[in-house]
Amino acid sequence: MTVRLLFENQALEVQEGITLAAALAGTGPIGFRYSVSGEPRAAFCGMGTCFECRVTVDGIAHQRACQIIVRDGMEVRREG
């Protein structure tokens, strides 16, 4: 079963039941956000501790992608 979501306006078809971080890391666009000095960053600790996987989900900023299960119709944007 798959789920469709938007990342930076690009449609992604991902497996249902996985985390948003797993979905974004595995399907191409690798950077999740830009750091305070402009470096691209992605999921790092995998367990909600490092906050590197923060993305804006459905307009709400600073959500940790590794602790969110993908949902059909989700709109995800990079931060920073």
Partner: peptide
């Protein structure tokens, strides 16, 4: 170490367990 693609070892394992395709 800050490059996308670098993770913790347990972190990488967690991401795979959470559904990341490798």
């Amino acid at each position: 170490w800050t490059l996308p693609g670098v993770m913790g070892a347990g972190g990488l394992q967690a991401m795979v367990k959470s559904g990341m395709c490798v």
